[in-house]
Simulated assay, not measured.
Amino acid sequence: MDKIDHLIFISPLSAIQEADKKLLEDAGIRRAVVAINGPLPELAPHIDTLHLDIHDDENEDILELLPRTLDWIDQGINSNSPTLLLCHAGVSRSATVATAHLMRKYSLSLEDALVRVRRCRPIADPNPNFKHQLKIFQLAGWSVSDSNPLVRRYRLLQKAKSIAGDGHGTRSDIDNKEGLLHLYQQKQQKKISRTTAVRCKQCRMKLAGYDDIVMYIPSSPFYVESLEWMNLVGGEVSGKLYCPNDKCKNKVGTYDWTGVKDSSLNEYVVPAIMLHQNKSEVYQIGAAVNNPLSLLRPGV
């Protein structure tokens, strides 16, 4: 059992199960975060337990669990109760929670927080999927909010994986393409302002606002998020998008949850929800601002 920070410890589950459970009581452990898939193992009766039913693999979503988990850990710290972080080996899942705790508590980057965890537990090594989510957590300001475009982009990709994995495609199709998508600012030949919106060329109804735009390159379609008017809830992997104006219904774009290869970027955009420039147009362009999506390269 290794001490990571004030009142925070980490251990493999096997070491705790093999040891005399009285040792936990003697060490003052009153709370435990158990990050394993399947049934919750039996610990000492005096231990208050938070169970994270997650696998240690490339498809698991741990980002959504972080706010509730970290708040629960903070409650223990505020009550001066030591908390033990557990997973099968004490290497990936519990190390991810420990790293996220240090990141939020001390406003650290993923890299700096992981260095601190490894000083206390050298074998700590979150899997690449968890590291990617921790990087999003960092760039989103150590929170998971719908108002943050990075978080929304992550959720959109998770939705794409879910739809493509439901008999229409394979997760590997998306995973392979995801690593090719570089959202660097220099890739965007023209920056956009917060007053930017996209509208239908035929009836001029607004189709998407600044926060809905994932990427804008003048020679490519407008890549946007999944919006309510698109009604993309049927699980179809690809299809056409029509203007929501009942008097117009002009075809304004297409979508493909498994992604398309953009000829301008020579890279895949996943998922690809596109408003085509011959059917839609930008309006209300103002002063250029940096798009925070440019800070993150999926696969980091």
Results as ranks from 00 to 15, higher is better:
Lys247Ile: 10
Ala197Ile: 06
Lys191Ser: 13
Asn245Tyr: 11
Ser226Met: 04
Glu228Phe: 07
Val224Ser: 02
Lys201Met: 11
Lys206Gln: 15
Gln189Glu: 15
Leu183Lys: 00
Gln284Trp: 12
Leu180Gln: 06
Ser264Ile: 05
Trp229Cys: 12
Arg194His: 13
Ala288Asn: 13
Pro218Leu: 01
Asp246Leu: 07
Lys247Pro: 05
Met205Gly: 12
Val233Arg: 10
Asn266Arg: 14
Cys200Phe: 06
Leu181His: 03
Thr195Ala: 06
Leu207Cys: 05
Pro244Lys: 08
Pro244Ile: 07
Glu281Trp: 10
Cys203Ile: 09
Gln188Ile: 03
Val289Met: 10
Gly209Val: 03
Ala287Thr: 09
Glu281Gly: 06
Leu207His: 05
Gln186Cys: 13
Met230Asp: 07
Gly234Trp: 05
Pro271Gly: 05
Leu265Ser: 00
Leu227Ala: 07
Glu228Arg: 13
Tyr184Thr: 11
Glu236Lys: 08
Thr254Glu: 08
Ile213Arg: 09
Ser280His: 03
Leu180Glu: 02
Ile217Leu: 08
Ile217Val: 12
Tyr184Met: 06
Ile273Lys: 06
Tyr268His: 01
Tyr210His: 13
Asp256Leu: 13
Val252Glu: 01
Cys243His: 06
Ser280Ala: 14
Val237Cys: 14
Met215Thr: 08
Asn278Gln: 13
Glu267Val: 00
Asp212Ala: 08
Pro271Arg: 03
Glu236Gln: 12
Cys248Ala: 12
Asn250Val: 08
Tyr223Ala: 06
Gly234Thr: 03
Asn231Leu: 09
Gly259Arg: 00
Val289Trp: 14
Lys247Glu: 12
Ile192Asp: 08
Val233Asp: 13
Lys251Cys: 13
Arg199Asn: 11
Arg194Cys: 11
Ala288Tyr: 14
Pro221Tyr: 06
Ile192His: 06
Gly286Thr: 07
Ile213Lys: 10
Val289Cys: 12
Ile192Ser: 04
Val269Lys: 00
Tyr210Cys: 08
Asp262Met: 03
Cys248Ile: 07
Cys248Tyr: 12
Ala287Lys: 15
Gly286Met: 02
Gly286His: 05
His182Ser: 03
Ala288Asp: 15
Phe222Gln: 09
Glu228Val: 13
Ser264Trp: 10
Val198Cys: 07
Gln185Thr: 07
Glu225His: 14
Gln284Gly: 05
Gly259Ser: 02
Val252Lys: 02
Val224Pro: 03
Gly209Ser: 11
Lys206Pro: 10
Thr195Pro: 03
Lys191Ala: 12
Lys249Ser: 12
Glu228Thr: 15
Gly259Cys: 01
Asn266Asp: 15
Asn250Cys: 13
Leu241Asn: 04
Lys190Arg: 15
Gly235Glu: 04
Tyr255Asn: 00
Gln185Val: 09
Leu181Gly: 01
Pro244Arg: 07
Asn245Gln: 06
